[in-house]
Design a protein around this nucleic acid. Structure first.
Lengths: 121, 121
DNA sequence: CTGTATCCGCTGCGATACTG
DNA sequence: CAGTATCGCAGCGGATACAG
């Protein structure tokens, strides 16, 4: 167990890459944000997460479940009800995710400005 | 201009999505981390960022340049030298990025454990 | 050294339809 | 309501070769 210099993210098998790949996909972060305030049902997620298809939503949720970020609870009712809830691990991801989204909202103006600029160059 | 509830990231045209898409790609974050400690040359990046091809490295750097995250400086020398440097904007992205990578290194064990667990279920 | 040019495979994501 | 089943494609990223 040696100290890591500044990030072993450069190894394809490293932890950072693992997480990066997960938040890199189109929907995980959005679902994380939606689940922050409490459990949500499948259809609630589908509505809130604008435009995701059921197939992809299921895929993403299953992946998150496998990684221990959410739990899936099925209620034996008619009509069926399924609730997705953030685990403690999923909760703990909120903080760094929030840091990113905060940065985004604070700096998107500069990014757009830089983009405009490069167009006129 | 109204206050936004918890995140407008759900709009495909929103700022958060913009940034999410950018850090979602395979190399941007790695380059950001590599550039943290100072300017780097093309080949240095290529070596440090394990296994990226020149085409993709150029693509990524160009995109980062357009978005105002890095500057590209060409030195009229033989052999040619090109240095990439983080802008203030790029620098400011370090903090949230770091939050993510820190989380990753701290929690990758739990994620892996959850994965193992789901395999045996 | 710092790229560009071409080709191509993979897979993430979407559209649509159907089921317990 | 909460998914599954198929089909399809567009685009990212990789391999390889070449150029200024």
């Amino acid at each position: 167990m040696e100290t890591i210099e500044q990030g072993d993210a450069f190894d394809p098998d490293c932890p950072t890459r693992l997480v990066l790949d997960r938040i890199g996909d189109r929907w995980t972060v959005l679902i994380l944000l939606t689940l922050r305030d409490g459990p949500r049902r499948f259809t609630e997620l589908r509505r809130k997460v604008n435009g995701v298809t059921p197939k992809v939503l299921t895929q993403t949720l299953r992946a998150m479940e496998r990684d221990g970020l959410v739990t899936r609870e099925v209620f034996a009712e008619v009509p069926p009800r399924v609730e997705y809830t953030l685990t403690a691990l999923g909760m703990s991801l909120q903080t760094p995710i929030q840091a990113i989204t905060d940065w985004a909202e604070a700096n998107v103006g500069k990014v757009m400005a830089a983009r405009e600029e490069s167009l006129r160059a």
